[in-house]
Each structure stands twice: as C-alpha cells, then as structure tokens.
Design a protein around this nucleic acid. Structure first.
Length: 437
RNA sequence: CGGGGUGUAGCUCAGCCUGGUAGAGUGCCUGCUUUGGGAGCAGGAUGUCGGAGGUUCGAAUCCUCUCACCCCGACCA
C-alpha cells in the first residue's frame, strides 16, 4: 500500500478525551475515531489489526474443534424472558421496540439464542458434544464507558458455547477451550495468565479469566513467579487428554484482586508477584443454567431426556487491540507483535523525486508486494524524513526499511527493528531476504 | 447511578470573572527556501463560540433549561 493513496489520519497532539496510553495511541495513530461514548469507528490500520486478531482467534477455535456460526445482533426479548434474564440484566441491556411493538434488544451475549438454536435442531446424544462459536459485535450499555476500546459499549467478541451430556464431558470441552486460549494468546504475542474466577451459583473451580499483564491494567493480580515462565505446548491433540496441560497452568497461585486471599501471601513469599492485568478472556462452565429453563435437552442412549451441560467462552477481540498496545508500546508509539501488525514493513522513501532513491524504493516495494509481504510504502513527496520516521514509530510496524540517497549511493538500505530500535545497513538483496524469510 | 469537570477552527487551548468587531499554536491551502528524526519565511482559507430560551441597545461572556463528552467512585469482555 502506498501511503500517498492510503487513509492514515495521524494526530500530532493527543485528543483530550483519551486518558490511558492505548486509547491515546489508537487515536493518534489513526486506528479509531470515536462516534459516541464507547462506540468507535475503525479506521484502516485499526481495522486491519482487528481482523488479524479475529483471524487468529478463529483459527485457534477451529483447531480446537469448535464450529463457527453467526447469530444476530438484534434478538427477541422472548428467549431472555424464558431464561429469566430479561428482568435481571438491567439497564446494561439496550432494549429496542420494533414497529410491531415487540420487545427486542441488541445482544449483550448469546447464551439464550444459541440454546434456542440447539434445542430446536439437536435431538440426540449422538450429536454431542458440540461447541458453537461466533465472532460478533455486541452491545452493553455501560454506565460509564472508558479507556477507548478496552471498555466500550459496542465491542467485538468471540463467544463459544459448548453442549455436553454430562459434567465430565463438559469438563473436557472446558479444557479444550482453556488450551485453545493459551494457544491464541501466545500467537497474539501476549503472555496471558489464567486465573481462577468467581463461578457464581454453580460453584466448583470451572471458571477462569485470562489476563494480559500490563502496568495500566484494570485489575490488580497476584501471581506466583512461576506462572510467568510457563510455556504453551506445541501441536496439542485436542482429542487427547488435556487435563495435564490445564493442571500445569493452574498449579501455581494466580488470582485477581477480587479473588485474592491475602493469607496465601506468606506462603508464597518471594515467589509472589503483584502486578496489574487486563481481562481478555473468560471461560466458564454453568451446567444446566440455561438448558433447564429453556428446555434444551436431547434423548440419551437409554431413551431418556437429558438436560445439556453447557459452558461459555469469551474473548474480547476489540478489547485485545487496546490490551496489546497497553502491553507493547514505548514513548514514540505502538510496537505491534508481528502476528497482528497492520503491515509487516514500513518502507520509507526518504527523498521521493531523487531518481536513484525512487528506483530502489519502487523496486523494493514491488518485490515485497510480489513476495506477499504486507508493506506500507511511505512515498509521500510532501513530508520530510523526520515526519516519516515519527509516523512509522507511532504506528508501530515491526520493521522500517529506510531508503535514502546516501545509502543508495553506497549500495545499502537501512533496516530498523521497531521493538529493539536496532538499525542495520545492508544490501537491498539482504534486506529482501530478511523480510521475505 | 452518585460526585466533579469541560463544550470556542480538523487537533490542543486562550478569551468568560469585569457584556462592546472571535483569537493563538498546530494542522490545512499557495509560493519560495529547505530536505536522514515531526523544517524556515511569507501569504491564505477555516467557526451555527454544543443547543434552546431569557436579560440587555448589544451575549462566547450574565441567568434558566437542555444535550453531549470527559474524570473519580460503584459496575463489567
């Protein structure tokens, strides 16, 4: 993409509405623009990042055996009245009345809808287990939206729902999601730590929040030092026994401040790390909470009806954009992990109009594009080098490939790593080899 | 939902107290110079002063109402 033809509205100054660093950087780097409180437009590079994250989440859900569907954003109040949540949910639910005076709502979550699908279309134990997921926009009318996309009213979420015959099977479904989440966050370049979460009336220990550690996180967290070094096993067999992996990742202490029990502190001693985190995923098993009131059951092997055991599993996709920035930035701007970067390379032509420089830059651009490398080519003739560098740092592409007259005369270009700041001069061929590897 | 604050140019903000021709920086446009880390000079365009009502000869400024946004707290992916 040529920057001269692109839409990248960067701001030199920070809009006063933004408090935290990810929000400021998202506005300044032209990722988003606020439309109303807690509701955002996604501008080109912001949307690219959102889609990258979405795709990684999707691939890992698919790998774990979950099946993608798409449910409506607007739901009928009817199913919520069945589950009993219509009155419980309160003003966070955006309620809408249609022209026929029917009560509708903009979905804040989809347990009722997916349960309705399942009960009407699945009749036999032979069709279980199943895990259906979607990546869909949701709306919760937060009293006080803040922190940009981290706490918006409208947000993109991956939500999965598992259906099983019994609790043991549901636990296996839970474990599959648990491990899928480990894989997902690792691919996003993030260290996300599962922490035991409140389970509500169901009890047990089958609920975990996944938090990305960041100084500006909303929740205080207390974790055993060992949690920070845990790795995600490669090539997991999702049909196999995942309990050992789950056990490993839950063997050490990790709790958010609301679940933290200070009596553990003495025992942990020097191993206790106190930090802050951003919740980016939440999984839980809730048994027959919805299947019972909504009559979601199948015929079992013995011919008797069985109420299904369900779980639901969320990942805040749009929130992750902000969370990743919180965890990965510096004074100059964003530092994208390569897996979610809007472009891999920022190709900077320092002196457009200089024939030799243009020739090298255009050649590099063509070859990178041909090799399938996502490259944003700063070919603007009306910006000086300093402004281009500042923009490149701000938008945080992993690599900056700098082509200028001095280097070209010497037969070299400069490759800068955004994260480390390291700059290396090399031949055009070497740079191409490095970026297309 | 309680408490606080802010609405003036695309963005950051001054002007309001003490009513009298709407400003600065930045960005944008034009020209010249410059050209490897957000250039310099000169010229230029840009506003229902959030909205409605009121007071007044006259309102960005004072009064009333209203809307939006932000912050703190309680609540949440």
């Amino acid at each position: 993409m040529r920057l001269s033809r692109y839409f990248l509205p960067v701001l030199k100054e920070t809009p006063s509405e933004a408090q935290i660093v990810s929000h400021r950087l998202m506005l300044r780097a032209g990722l988003i623009r606020q439309h109303a409180a807690g509701i955002y437009n996604w501008l080109p590079i912001g949307y690219r990042v959102l889609r990258k994250i979405e795709q990684i989440v999707r691939e890992e859900q698919d790998r774990s055996g979950a099946i993608e569907i798409l449910m409506p954003t607007i739901q009928t109040a009817e199913v919520w009245k069945e589950s009993g949540r219509y009155d419980d949910y309160g003003k966070e639910m955006l309620r809408i009345v249609d022209r026929h005076d029917r009560d509708m709502l903009y979905g804040p979550t989809h347990e009722e809808v997916v349960t309705d699908i399942f009960r009407s279309m699945v009749k036999s134990y032979k069709d279980l287990p199943k895990n259906l997921y979607q990546i869909q926009w949701k709306f919760r009318d937060e009293v006080r939206p803040r922190f940009g996309v981290m706490r918006g009213r409208e947000f993109l979420m991956k939500d999965a729902y598992s259906f099983d015959l019994d609790e043991a099977s549901a636990r296996r479904a839970y474990n599959r999601m648990f491990v899928a989440y480990l894989n997902t966050f690792a691919r996003l370049g993030m260290k996300a730590i599962p922490m035991r979460a409140a389970t509500g009336p169901i009890g047990g220990n089958l609920s975990h929040e996944f938090l990305i550690l960041a100084e500006t996180g909303e929740s205080g967290v207390f974790v055993h030092k060992g949690m920070l070094e845990k790795t995600v096993p490669a090539n997991v067999d999702f049909d196999g026994d995942l309990q050992p992996i789950v056990d490993d990742w839950t063997s050490l202490y990790a709790a958010t401040d609301e679940m933290h029990d200070a009596s553990n502190e003495a025992e942990l001693g020097d191993n206790l790390v106190s930090a802050r985190g951003i919740e980016v995923g939440h999984i839980f098993y809730f048994g027959t909470k919805y299947s019972k009131p909504m009559g979601c059951k199948v015929v079992g092997a013995d011919g008797q009806d069985v109420e299904l055991h369900m779980g639901s599993y969320g990942i805040g996709v749009s929130r992750l954009v902000g969370a990743i920035i919180e965890a990965s930035h510096d004074d100059a701007g964003i530092i994208w992990p390569e897996s979610v970067a809007p472009f891999k390379v920022g190709l900077i032509n320092i002196k457009p109009g200089d024939a030799a420089t243009d020739a090298v830059a255009e050649d590099l651009y063509a070859k990178l594009e041909a090799a399938g490398v996502e490259v944003l080519y700063d070919d603007r003739a009306d910006e000086r080098a300093g402004a281009k560098f500042a923009t490149a740092d701000l938008i945080g592409l992993p690599w900056q490939l700098v082509v200028g007259p001095k280097g070209v005369a010497a037969g070299v270009v400069e490759l800068k790593n955004r994260r480390s700041g390291e700059k290396v001069e090399m031949s055009v061929e070497a740079a191409l080899a490095k970026l297309t590897a």
